[in-house]
């Protein structure tokens, strides 16, 4: 009977923490990418009037 077999409901928990760490790293990269360095910003601003 399916009622009497053990089901570990936290089986995916370990994988969840790995996923969390991966996404935290990716998130830091994304935020670093978004807050672009000043140099890049000014050169882009120079480029803008031309386009």
């Amino acid at each position: 009977m399916e009622y009497y077999s053990y089901v570990n409901i936290f089986e995916t928990k370990g994988l969840a923490y790995i996923l969390l760490i991966c996404f935290l790293v990716l998130g830091i990269l994304l935020i670093k990418y978004l807050s672009a360095p000043e140099k890049k910003d000014s050169s882009a601003a120079e480029r803008k009037p031309r386009t």
Binding site: L30, Y33, L34, A36, K40, D41, A44, A45, R47, K48
Partner: peptide, 8 residues
């Protein structure tokens, strides 16, 4: 969005 923000 990320690409566009970075490159204005």
């Amino acid at each position: 969005f990320a690409y566009a923000v970075r490159n204005r």
